[in-house]
């Protein structure tokens, strides 16, 4: 038996280093080889299984559309149908609701976090009301705001409101009082204390709240389109697909909803990473 010496031979390794400097591999190749592709194994396997199951007649293609049908339906929707309008409608109402709910949640969380009186007066009711399941609000919202855009945005805002409010409150309340003492030593006024100490100290948790809100808001967007069916939206298009028994359209909708959700999540992760790099979470 021989030992695999050539692979670990230090001379070989040393030889490779300088040559690497002169002949840089193409950027695309470096990008491809630096990524860990193992996460794609499972989706590809599922795709292959899906394809095989529909191709060899193991499933009813009326109920489970084959992958190629989903692709065709998707391309059709993108180039001939109202996909762009649906997507635009969904994303814009998502962002509108997120902004509205996020701002309101931040305001309430700040109020509860900075004022003992406000906490005593409001926090118990807030904790009780937040126990109401999100979708239980829909009947009331639809009566008050109708079935159109305002109702949907209000519902999405409600979904974004809770996580931001709770996390802002807890973030502010858990600011280390030692920091506030430092601020007093340097004669900070209330506004300085707020801007330079409390807000940054609470920011990791506020970001957590915003991140959750972004996810909940997208969830609520599809929910709102489902329960308050009027106008355009990715959710509406999926319901249409179901009503016309167009499983390609339903599955394409699923792919779109998942992709947008993943994109929003990625966006939040990166933003958080940039803004909170002082926390040294990556190292």
């Amino acid at each position: 038996m021989t030992y695999p010496i050539p692979e670990t031979d230090p001379v070989l390794v040393r030889d490779e280093v300088p040559s690497d400097k002169h002949v840089q591999p193409p950027a695309l190749w470096r990008w491809l080889s630096q990524r860990d592709w193992r996460g794609f194994a499972l989706p590809l396997a599922v795709l292959a299984l899906w394809w095989a199951v529909t191709r060899f007649g193991l499933a009813n293609t009326q109920v489970l559309a084959p992958p190629e049908a989903v692709l065709v339906e998707g391309l059709h929707q993108i180039f001939n149908g109202g996909f762009v309008w649906d997507l635009l409608a969904s994303v814009s109402r998502d962002l509108a609701g997120f902004t509205l709910g996020g701002l309101a949640g931040f305001a309430l969380g700040t109020l509860l976090g900075t004022s003992r009186l406000a906490e005593l007066l409001v926090a118990p009711s807030f904790n009780a009301v937040k126990q109401i399941a999100l979708f239980a609000w829909i009947p009331m919202i639809s009566v008050w705001f109708g079935m159109g855009e305002p109702a949907k945005v209000v519902f999405i805002a409600l979904a974004a409101f809770y996580p931001v409010a709770i996390n802002t409150f807890e973030g502010i309340r858990s600011v280390n009082r030692d920091y506030a003492e430092v601020a007093r030593v340097y004669g900070f006024g209330r506004l300085q204390l707020w801007r330079r100490v409390i807000l940054p100290a609470a920011s990791p948790q506020i970001f957590t709240g915003l991140h959750l809100a972004l996810i909940y808001a997208w969830l609520a967007t599809i929910g709102a389109e489902y329960f308050l069916k009027s106008g355009y939206g990715v959710g509406n298009s999926m319901i249409d697909g179901r009503e016309h028994f167009n499983m390609g359209s339903v599955l394409f909708g699923l792919v779109v909803v998942g992709s947008i959700g993943a994109l929003l999540n990625q966006f939040a992760v990166r933003l958080e990473h940039r803004a909170l790099k002082w926390r040294n979470r990556a190292a």
Binding site: L112, G113, T114, S115, R116, E119, I172, R173, S174, V175, R177, A180, R184, R190, L193, I198
Partner: peptide, 9 residues
């Protein structure tokens, strides 16, 4: 004692 600042904590 935590002087002048009346925060919830």
């Amino acid at each position: 004692p935590f002087g002048d600042y009346v925060f919830a904590w």
